[in-house]
Design a protein around this nucleic acid. Structure first.
Lengths: 209, 209
DNA sequence: TGATTTTTTGCATCGGTTGCAATTTTCTGT
DNA sequence: ACAGAAAATTGCAACCGATGCAAAAAATCA
């Protein structure tokens, strides 16, 4: 057992990849809603019915790697460095995940700029993004609490993760949505993260009408 | 013009209300996905086609009041009190919006517990909730910045709103999802909000493996 | 009442999704 | 290389949500 993957799995991987690329290409070319499942299937030369043995839904072809991304973040949680506070650990995790919008087109597997743009501009995909995001935040918080239960109770973990990720996330989404260039977006998200870390008491001064 | 509403509009309001109530009842009774548009229409005795002149989508029958809620929050932004910092103002807005999960069943118009439960348990509705939430956060941040541009630049506003709302939001969603009772959820969300306000440097101590 | 405007309705259609059974492809042991 | 088991692919029918369109019904107004 554990042989090198047979023809079956190699083929399946290839088809999967082809589907992702074909779909993305079509989405970019003619829009997400305007691209039909049948077209995607045709582009890869499989029957429309077979599409659903690769992806459960049309959306999934866009979000194929969200699980892997979460796994990577969860793995980072296990590598707390000596002398590091929990907050610093989470900060590292969040920074690492900020590649989200920052990574330049990564032929291999990354979020291409085209994908980011799609995700930000199609309402159905926006909603799904947020769903993924919040699920991830939840899992992160739970893992963080489990890993260091003496330092953080569950609510504190949620608050930590929610504030730390909420600030850069909404910043990034808003700026991406308005079409700001990715590097500016990334810088703004970093800045938002810093502000969240520092706490909010500093913001502003008493109102003198 | 601006007469008392004629029969037409009264009827339309009544039908709208009936649709909301019938739909919610059916959703609770047999599940969201399992309830068909035709059934909802039949319960109110209109043709299925007519449903779409009251709500654009099936989801909308659940989210009919999200716009009003955002408007209320935006209105609060305009009422900054003397001596209040921007952060304190936002804090008040967020606290006010936390009624979201806290309000007991409100015959009049509020989010009933049943609705909260539906929203938390049906993935499509979860996604939509988040979409609404993030849009609201974005609008709030933009309004906040516009109202007090000397005190907050746009990024700071996003960070403020994102952290302040992100912390209680994810806390509430996670706890509601796991079935915690609403009053506990609300308390936890309040606590998460406090933590976000204070900033996160305090969390935990250096790691000594 | 009769003419006008708005609402409702039926119908046909489309796209995403699922269940099922038949068919084809790959794998396993010999 | 071959037969049979296992898995993947396919076509087909059906369901549901959603949309466009034109006919029918209801409300408004003169």
């Amino acid at each position: 057992m554990a042989e090198s993957p047979g023809l079956r799995e190699r083929k399946k991987l290839r088809t999967r990849r082809a589907l992702i690329e074909a779909a993305l290409g079509l989405f970019v070319e003619k829009g997400y809603e305007e691209t039909t499942l049948a077209e995607i299937a045709a582009a890869v030369d499989i029957s429309p019915r077979t599409f659903f043995s690769y992806f459960a839904t049309k959306e999934d072809v866009i979000f194929f790697d969200s699980q892997a991304r979460l796994d990577r973040a969860l793995a980072m949680l296990a590598e707390r460095r000596p002398g590091e506070t929990v907050a610093e650990l989470m900060l590292r995790v969040v920074e690492n995940s900020l590649d989200w919008a920052a990574a330049p087109d990564d032929e291999a597997m990354g979020l291409t700029a085209a994908r980011v743009h799609l995700i930000m501009s199609v309402p159905a995909l926006q909603a799904r993004t947020l769903h993924v995001l919040v699920n991830s935040q939840r899992r992160l918080a739970e893992a963080l609490h489990r890993a260091h239960p003496e330092e953080l109770d569950l609510i504190e973990a949620f608050a930590l993760v929610g504030a730390l990720l909420g600030a850069p996330t909404i910043t990034a989404m808003a700026l991406l949505d308005r079409g700001d260039p990715p590097d500016q977006v990334w810088a703004a998200a970093r800045q938002a993260l810093d502000i969240a870390v520092q706490g909010l008491r500093w913001v502003g001064s008493p109102y003198r009408p």
